[in-house]
Each structure stands twice: as C-alpha cells, then as structure tokens.
Design a binder for these strands. Structure first.
Lengths: 201, 201
DNA sequence: TGCTTAATTGACCAAACGATCAATAAGACG
DNA sequence: CGTCTTATTGATCGTTTGGTCAATTAAGCA
C-alpha cells in the first residue's frame, strides 16, 4: 500500500510540503493546518514537516503569504496594464462573485489567528498594504486617463478593500446570492471611484 | 488564599459563569474561551463550567450572541427613535472610531470558528441579519422622512454592514489611524444612503 | 560494490483541550 | 441538631497539538 521511503533534495521536499499546505489551507482554511494534516497530505511524517519549518506559526504565515501573493500576481497580470472602466468593473465583480470563497476563508482565519501569531500578523499587514497599493494604482491610472474622477485614489482603495473583505466574509455565513450581491454593488463602486456612469442624484 | 467553596443557585452560578465568559471574550476573543480559562476567571472549577454548558460550542455561541445582542440593544436604545441625518452619521462614526476593537475581535473569531461550530454559525447568521435589519430600518425611516434618498434601504444596509465589518477587521492589523479612517468614510456613507450632503459630481 | 552523508522516520514528550464521574460538602429544611 | 438534596469538586480519561531526538535508510560518490 504505502510507497517506500523516498529521499528528495531539501528544495524539492520543501516545495512539496509547501504545496500540500497550500492546497490544504484552500480547502479547510489556515485553521486546518497542523503538522500532521500537512504531513498526511504530502505523504510524509509530521516530524518532517516540523523539520522543514522554523515553527508552525511561520509555516502558516508563509502559506498565507503565498496564497494571497498568487492571487495578487494573477490580478496584476490580468488587469495591470488596463485602464478601462469596464476592466476595473470586471475585476471588482470577480472579487465578489463567490468564486473566491476559499481565499476568503484563508483571510478570515488570518485575521483571527494573526492576533496570536506575530509572523502571521506581519504577513497580513503586508498583504493588506499590497492589495491597497494594487487597487490604488489601478484607480489612479484611470484618473490619469480621465476615466475616473476620484480625489484620493489611495483612500478609495482602502475603502474598496474593506468593502470587498467585509462582503466576502459575510457571504461565508449568509445565504444571500453572491451574484446578486455583486450586481448591487456596482453603483456604489462607481460612485466610490468616480466612474461617470455611477448613479447621480 | 482561596475562599471556601460557595454554593449558589443554578441561576446565579449560570449568570456568573456567563459574565466571566463574556468579559474574557471581550479581552481575548472567542478563541480564548476554554473551560479552564472561564473557570479561573469565575473562581470555580472547569468541571462546573462544563456542567452548566451543553457543550463548549454552545457556550461560545451564547457568549457571541450575548455580546452582539447587547451592542444591538444599546444602539437601538440610542438611535432607534431618531430620524436625523446627523444621528445616523454619528452612529456610523461610532462604529468606526476604534472603540469597538473588542467586539470586532469577537466578530472575526466568530467568522473563523463558525465554520467548525454549527451553533456559532447559526448565531452569526442571526446576528448579521439583525444588524442588517437595524440599519435598514434606520435608513428607511430617514427615507420616509425625506432626509435620505435611497432606492433600496435593505441593500444599502447590507453594504454598510459589510463596509463596517471589513474596515474594522482591517483596523485590527493595520496601523492606519482609526479616527482618520472614519472621517474619510463619511462622504462614501452619505452617497450610500443618499444623504443630500454627499459629494456630488 | 561498499562507504558515507544526511534526509527521513518512529517513538517520544509536555501541554492543553473537552468531557465524564464518583466523591464531597454547602445549605435548606424538618 | 441532624438529615437530605444537589451544587461543586478533584481526579482522570482520550485526543490533539507543536516540538525534539536518536535511529534508520535512501542515494550520491569513491
């Protein structure tokens, strides 16, 4: 049944364990990360997971940073060069359409566990700043291009991050339809960034 | 050192334990609630805490419901009868001024732990609905009074709850000044509810 | 092929958790 | 004052956690 012991290079093993931990976190949240659960998924022993990690706190913080970092890179690749209002809207909608439930669970756990783990708290602060900077850049580019009219893109970006985080966290426990929620958000987002199509009064 | 054993009525002891658990949760979050930590604060034994609780999951859910319920009642008492724009603004500012950090920690823990505790998940859903209903009622009353111009108070309330939750959660890990963040929120909130003083474009 | 390095294991440990149960004793009541 | 109910305790169990360490063994190398 069990495959014979395999001896990998430290780099390979490190990567394999990191992959297992990332997959596990996306399925069960950061709260589901233990030496033994990661080891079982990677097909190794808990002791080996402990061997390659400075501590579980650092392991969890690294997993969080990697998951969020991958998402940021993906969004940068897809929307980084665009300056259209439609592209920004598509981005915001994609952040709210419910397809990010796994990542939202990771964020929620990070906020909770981060209070008792300094490495994780640091990673959360960094990730929040990166998110804000990314959105601020996207908004600012559109202000420069005359698409948006926003007095302070940095502030708008903070609001948007908070809005997205809060609504996504709600969607974890509420029954509300995610698609509907996203649609209803558009007018508010348009007003937030000064999109000319925002409902005027 | 230790006071002699004291024998209370079940109701008194129940209330004392519940109080100890609530105070502890406000200091360390729901994650800090254990039979032993609650027992130590109440000056009793862990076995007694277990005796009066159906299970720790239910205990935690009850503590959450009580903390959030008290906050809701307080806000209802202070803002329930008011229909002024200033009153609503004062409420929103008070929700963002950083004085709610303890309650925010409880909420964040509830979102995380609620995924593994059905009683807690139920309590979170109920509390979310109550919050939304409260804000929707406040907004709607102002729409009726002609103070706000909002096509769908219920939707605006959901957005506001998400916004407040998200920004408060951020404040747990970010260094941003809470007061500044609240001030910068006002224009957005005004636009959200259709307050005539919202920045027009 | 045999040796040597070090990746990997299994067996531990102490701590903390929720939960259960017989034994104790506080306080009401006759 | 003695008795009885039951609130309360202390001891204990089984589980899970992060972490450590000597022993094992896979695989590169002479």
């Amino acid at each position: 049944m069990s495959t014979p012991r395999l001896r990998l290079s430290p780099e390979e093993r490190r990567a394999q364990i990191a992959d297992a931990a990332r997959d596990l976190a996306l399925e069960e949240g950061l709260i589901g990360l233990t030496q033994r659960s990661i080891a079982a998924r990677a097909g190794v022993t808990g002791a080996l997971v402990a061997h390659y990690a400075q501590s579980m706190d650092h392991l969890v913080a690294d997993v969080f940073a990697r998951i969020v970092g991958a998402e940021l890179a993906e969004i940068r690749a897809e929307h980084g060069a665009d300056t259209s209002a439609e592209g920004f809207e598509a981005l915001v909608l994609s952040l709210l359409d419910g397809g990010r439930a796994a990542v939202t669970r990771v964020w929620v756990d990070a906020f909770s566990l981060g209070r008792r783990s300094e490495p994780l708290a640091l990673a959360v602060r960094r990730a929040s700043d990166e998110w804000q900077a990314l959105l601020a850049g996207l908004i600012d580019a559109r202000v420069e291009a005359g698409v948006f009219d926003c007095p302070d893109p940095a502030v708008a970006a903070w609001h948007l991050v908070g809005l997205v985080d809060g609504l996504n966290a709600q969607s974890l426990v509420s029954w509300g339809d995610a698609g509907t929620r996203a649609d209803l958000m558009l007018p508010l987002v348009r007003r937030l960034v000064g999109d000319g199509r925002g409902t005027r009064r």
